[in-house]
Design a protein around this nucleic acid. Structure first.
Lengths: 339, 339
DNA sequence: AGCGGCGTTCAAAACGTTTAAGCTCCTCTA
DNA sequence: TAGAGGAGCTTAAACGTTTTGAACGCCGCT
């Protein structure tokens, strides 16, 4: 309506009270009289008042902003995580400031520096390989709570919410070994990021436990992309003594692997077994549907947000390491090895 | 290092200059002497200075924040859009404040109100059905630039970047009619959102143009979810005189439709043709691969961000309506109708 | 000597909140 | 009747920037 920006002062002037009263009234402080509060809130509504968080934030050193930093927003698994985070954050009155770094450590550094300037109350980070305590110093020193999600940085005494990667890999191995497979590959992941490292360690350990011989040629390193799965499985099938099954780093690479197997005229599930990891929505719909580890994205996202917000509200306790056990969902891409 | 928060004042004091000089120096203003600038920047670096955007924003009424509001972050198409937006925004020094509303108009209203408080420089909105000029008044009146993405609000004189939905639908119809189909269904979408309305209008128009009889039973309204496609195609196949092909509102519902068709023992592409819309990455990988309209998500996202940022920088011109023509990608789910 | 102009720096106000401390009344109690 | 106590409101300072207008010192010119 009026051209003038409507601030606390303007409202105060019009109602002939002080800005302090207006401020208090709008925030439902018990110290202002019932009648005044109503008068103020009504006026604010009528005048189209909009709270200025920059000003408030400057004064209070709080922002109600949660910074969320991911590598790749295009991966459906992370989307489902982000969706869960956003939803829970909104429920608890926080907003999401988003940053992505596309698996580049340098870009992550830049992104973190930028987001830091907005004085977020907290940070949810799925860290790039190579990230250390030092990388995060700007946040840690400022006392900004940090919750690591999915990926865990070694030797960092900070909260973590993610899945029990080792347990997941063991479950996948158990399943395949139970079906009779003896030469099992692992596609994707690397030792620079905890998710890869832990699963690969469990993979090795399961070989020892079951007396299988570990063949380094069956461990194909790489990112978890569709392309990677396709290429990786191709390389494996070209081996003189190819494996009969593969565990993929995530569903995306498992889809790629299905494709690669199919393209060679083989049938996934019958001629070659594939286990994914994540259980994104898409997984149930492939033909054949993907056997995979359900990675509890909604639960992880929500708990991460909750834990972070609790920290922002002063919940001060030893850092928590929350590891949810993934659940194996057996579908159509696994079967006993062909004779 | 030191416990004290390091602000411009602190740096100024230490170097025995004024805060004005420090502020200017840090922003590479040409009025400060070369030597001073270096001295200041060095000190700032050493002391671990972090720019406080709340303070700056309060003073300048700018935030370098772009609010982005979507219905559903879990749809891969929107993820690809969001990814493109975020990337371009980062390149141009802006950050993304994210809000989602899950197709609920009321939630959208709340989300917009919240984001508004952060004084974003601009807004990218993919609006809920029912949104009007009035809904957006808080932004429009405040002169905050708004770019509509994908979904266009009727009678709103604001920028728009999206695809030419009518042209896309026509291309899909042309393709199917060219293959010999005469009873073609359309699954998903509704008239409350421009994407649905325009495609459905084009669908009707193509019937008239080619002398096909329009059967309302072949127009299945609904959201663009996997479930919707599955259910929708089921309903169609139960018809006494079922269609031989369907155009789906988006790829997600097309995937659902493929599934539904397959479950009835029919083979998509041979027994029933399906055209999707979006061309998400997943589309090329289904078996059979999905015939769909490539919707240029990266280009749309980037151009949306660019246009909005231009507006924020004062680019003042008549509102633009940018409509990119989708491109039909013919793959395995379309073929001539069975005899 | 005086003056104009240039390059550099500074003081101070402003942005819109929050909050600690204090001020008025008024009522209640001793 | 004095004083305590409390309810309700206000004053004023503070948060950390940016920006305007002025001032300062110096140089070269007339």
């Amino acid at each position: 309506m009026s051209d003038e920006r409507v601030t606390l002062q303007v409202i105060a002037q019009r109602l002939e009270v002080s800005t302090a009263t207006v401020s208090l009234a709008l925030r439902d402080s018990p110290v202002v009289a019932e009648a005044t509060r109503e008068r103020v809130q009504k006026a604010a509504r009528e005048m189209g008042y909009v709270y200025n968080r920059s000003a408030a934030s400057l004064r209070t050193a709080r922002s109600d902003i949660l910074a969320v930093v991911f590598h790749d927003i295009t991966n459906p698994y992370f989307m489902e995580l982000l969706g869960a985070i956003e939803e829970r954050a909104a429920e608890r009155g926080r907003s999401i400031l988003l940053g992505t770094y596309g698996e580049s450590f340098e870009r992550q550094t830049r992104v973190l520096a930028t987001l830091r300037e907005y004085r977020p109350d907290g940070l949810i980070l799925c860290a790039a390989g190579g990230t250390s305590r030092e990388t995060l110093a700007p946040f840690l020193n400022a006392g900004i709570p940090l919750v690591q999600m999915m990926r865990e940085i070694p030797d960092l005494e900070a909260d973590f919410v993610g899945s029990d990667d080792a347990a997941g890999a063991r479950a996948a191995m158990d399943h395949l070994i139970g079906l009779g497979h003896r030469r099992i590959a692992i596609i994707g992941g690397s030792d620079t990021v905890s998710t890869g490292r832990l699963r690969r360690e469990a993979y090795r350990e399961m070989h020892a436990r079951h007396g299988l011989t570990l063949d380094p040629a069956l461990m194909v390193e790489g990112f978890g992309t569709r392309e990677m799965g396709d290429i990786g499985v191709g390389r494996l099938l070209d081996l003189p003594d190819p494996p009969t099954a593969a565990i993929c780093f995530n569903d995306l690479s498992a889809f790629g692997a299905i494709l690669g197997v199919t393209r060679r005229g083989m049938q996934p599930g019958r001629d070659f077994s594939i286990v994914g990891c994540d259980d994104v929505k898409e997984a149930a719909q492939w033909v054949p549907a993907l056997t995979t580890l359900h990675n509890r994205q909604v639960e992880i996202g929500a708990r991460t947000a909750d834990l972070l917000i609790d920290r922002c509200m002063g919940f001060d306790d030893a850092p928590q390491k929350i590891r949810l056990t993934p659940e194996l969902v057996v579908r159509g891409t696994t079967a006993p090895p062909p004779r």
